[in-house]
């Protein structure tokens, strides 16, 4: 957090993703802004369908063809991704920006050995010999805590457990020493006991190698442990962003507060006390969306919430709510 004077590694301004549907245009992501500096970990939280994964795919340039991407700025280290050619994007992917997907069971190709799949990115981007790529693969497999790394190279994905496969996927992302890793719910599909291991491995390695990371998750416990910065997404908008300590310490948006009440806190939540829930459902994002999308579920909504909501707060802690103080005091009585 001492690095905010540097130019950010990734700077996103006004990222918008629209999906044309027969019933109208689905505004899946609606003008989000954030900055990510070198070596920082940004956690994006939010419920399913809030646009987290689409945001990550939009940065990678891997959106389905039917999704329309527009942005005022999508700057990665001086390269404007919105105008980058396919070739430029291909050169970035797997080399300077790597991605880790949710499903370790299906994100490796069943027909090729671990060694082939680990070497691939390096062979594509670095023009190195087979031996050199394999040596690097062994080195990284050891780094992600896989024993007998050498002999694993000849194994196929189906011979490995889910936890091992996700370690392989992490090693694969690190092959070319990327500057940015986007991890889309990397532990969701794993056993609970393995989740913590894989997550701390990922965080340790990104810190050690000074890689910036966007970690997409809906697990707030994870966020509290690893995030430098937090972005809370709701219905296609980043409703609150800021340093992790600030967002968790003084959550400003009622949605963030609602999320925080949904997780048990040791010492605070009493045995038998029901956990919080957020009543209502996410509004449809098909057609024009006006005002605060959370207002139908918000206990403090007022008429002004129907209008445009300007950014509130001051950098680095910003949020999209015009009534945060009132909400805070009102909720203070509830909790």
């Amino acid at each position: 957090m001492t690095r905010h004077t540097e130019t950010p590694l990734l700077s996103v301004r006004g990222l918008t993703l629209d999906i044309p549907l027969p019933s109208g245009v689905l505004h899946a992501v609606r003008g989000i802004d954030f900055d990510l500096h070198r070596g920082e970990t940004l956690c994006i939280v939010g419920e399913s369908g809030s646009g987290k994964s689409l945001t990550s795919l939009a940065i990678m340039g891997l959106l389905d063809k039917n999704i329309q991407r527009s942005a005022d700025q999508l700057d990665f280290n001086g390269i404007e991704l919105t105008t980058a050619s396919k070739r430029q994007m291909r050169a970035l992917r797997g080399d300077r920006i790597a991605m880790i997907f949710q499903e370790p069971m299906t994100s490796l190709n069943p027909a090729y050995t671990i060694g082939d799949q680990l070497s691939e990115a390096m062979r594509l981007h670095r023009n190195v010999s087979r031996e050199k790529a394999r040596a690097r693969a062994v080195e990284l497999l050891e780094k992600v805590g896989i024993t007998a790394a050498e002999s694993r190279l000849g194994q196929y994905p189906h011979q490995l457990s889910g936890g091992l496969r996700q370690r392989v996927v992490i090693a694969m992302a690190l092959m070319c020493e990327p500057e940015l890793i986007i991890a889309d719910e990397p532990t969701t599909a794993l056993d609970v006991t393995i989740q913590a291991q894989i997550l701390s491995l990922l965080v340790d390695l990104t810190k050690e190698m000074d890689v910036a990371m966007i970690l997409i998750t809906h697990d707030l416990g994870v966020v509290a442990r690893v995030a430098d910065k937090v972005g809370v997404m709701y219905a296609g908008e980043l409703v609150e962003t800021g340093p992790a300590g600030d967002v968790f310490g003084t959550p400003m948006h009622p949605y963030t507060r609602g999320l925080l009440r949904c997780i048990p806190q040791p010492g605070k939540t009493e045995r038998g006390q029901p956990l919080g829930t957020i009543p209502g459902i996410v509004p449809s994002l098909v057609g024009a969306v006006q005002g605060c999308a959370f207002r139908t579920r918000c206990p403090h909504a007022v008429d002004a919430c129907r209008g445009a909501i300007p950014e509130q707060g001051a950098a680095p802690h910003e949020f999209l709510c015009i009534y945060p103080d009132g909400a805070a005091s009102a909720e203070g009585e509830m909790t």
Binding site: M60, L62, D95, F101, S107, L108, N109, P110, A111, A121
Partner: peptide, 25 residues
């Protein structure tokens, strides 16, 4: 399938994705 997305995320070109990763399966 997910592994095709993985291949693209590695920076593999379309030809490689189609013939090396997809067709074999």
């Amino acid at each position: 399938s997910d592994y095709i997305r993985t291949a693209r995320a590695k920076g593999a070109g379309e030809g490689r994705v189609m013939f090396k990763h997809a067709l074999r399966n």
